[in-house]
Amino acid sequence: MLHIVACIKQVPDTKVAKINPKTNTIDRASAPAILNPYDAHAVEEAVRLKKRYGGVVSVLTMGPPPAVKAIRKCIELGADEGYMISDRAFAGADTLATSYALAKALEQIAKQRPIDLIICGKMTIDGDTGQVGPGIARRLDIPPLTGVNKVVEINKEKGYAIVHRKLEDGYEVVKSTLPCLFTVEKEINDISFAPLPNMIKAARYYPTIWTANDLENVDRKQLGLKGSPTIVSKIWTPPKPKGGEMLEGTTEEKVEQLLSIVLEKKELFQS
């Protein structure tokens, strides 16, 4: 029986989000909140491992109350339990403060049911750093395995996992002790269709919700904005480059002009 916890985040769908031209910030009202696409693959992999080896899949998120929706989405994908930490004290956290709070929540979950494996997404589409996963692993002092694109074997009895880690030009096969933490690539799996019973369960699901006070041994100085070494000092629009020369004329004329511009670099075509 494995206990796998996937860390997931609700994010604004940056593909449709609009930028408020006055403040240069993302206009959240314009952006529907979705489960971070990379985290869907983390949950999917956890559910697949559960089917392969038996066990329980929990998901954990830190976020404002509406993030319950993202947890429900994970229940649809086949997760068994959902945990959420939600508190103003967590607000404004950078990756260091985020990994601290999530590590505290994971310790709390582990007290109820020891954790064998934690799976994170490769990155979030709003924060976009990929730093939180390895940060959690360091805080819990377990090995971080980043860029996992295949799980070869999990052996709980003997206490090891074997995975493929993606490299720039191939992959490496790595063996690690358990527990450990994976961050997974998109190509690790295709998201399965949610079966109807899961959808029904999800619709009525309420996760366990903890505030900062519910977490044990928390150093408040390390939470949220206070616990974040990095600050965004300014947000700016880069000066617009002058722009290029526009080719004019009929389509054929434009094509011919382009042809001569490109073919001027003769050396590229002569080898």
Binding site: D94, G130, G135, R138, R139, P144, T146, R165
Partner: peptide
């Protein structure tokens, strides 16, 4: 900001601890 550089930087940032700006 390669797979190796990101992996190492994230770990160091957590252990020191200090801030880390990505990409």
């Amino acid at each position: 900001a390669t797979p190796t550089g990101k992996d190492l930087a994230s770990a160091i940032a957590t252990d020191l601890p200090t801030g880390l700006t990505a990409d």
